[in-house]
């Protein structure tokens, strides 16, 4: 049991939740998502985001559209699908429950 693995496991779940949360307020392209995630120190390197986005999209939680960019290649603008919204709602409850549980257990200790 390595601490690194456990940390990564924890962060992974939270990361997905955060990405979906960011997109809740509207569509965004990867750089915008990264900015917010970086601000929360959830990710260090941008490369992490791309496989996650692709997998969320392939799982049907996200969809995207192309938009031309003046400063580079066309951007993928991601947004939540219906399934994604459902998924996010469930995650939100789960998260709240987890936070409560964690707070409870930590107070006891």
């Amino acid at each position: 049991m390595k601490i690194e693995n456990t940390k990564a496991q924890m962060r992974k779940g939270v990361l997905e939740y955060c990405i979906l949360s960011i997109l809740k307020s509207g569509e965004a392209y990867p750089s915008e998502i990264i900015e917010k995630l970086k601000a929360g120190k959830l990710i260090v390197v941008e490369g992490t985001l791309y496989p996650l986005l692709t997998r969320l999209k392939n799982a049907g939680l996200l969809s995207y559209r192309w938009e031309e960019s003046k400063s580079g290649p066309p951007r993928k603008y991601y947004q939540l699908t219906k399934i994604g919204e459902e998924f996010l709602k469930e995650l939100e409850t789960t998260w709240d429950d987890l936070v409560k549980a964690v707070n409870l257990t930590r107070k006891k200790n």
């Binding site: 962060r11 992974k12 390197v45 992490t48 496989p51």
Partner: peptide
Amino acid sequence: VTIMGKPEQYIDED
């Protein structure tokens, strides 16, 4: 490369 990160630094659920 610093911004994007090396693959070792990626968080991957695969």
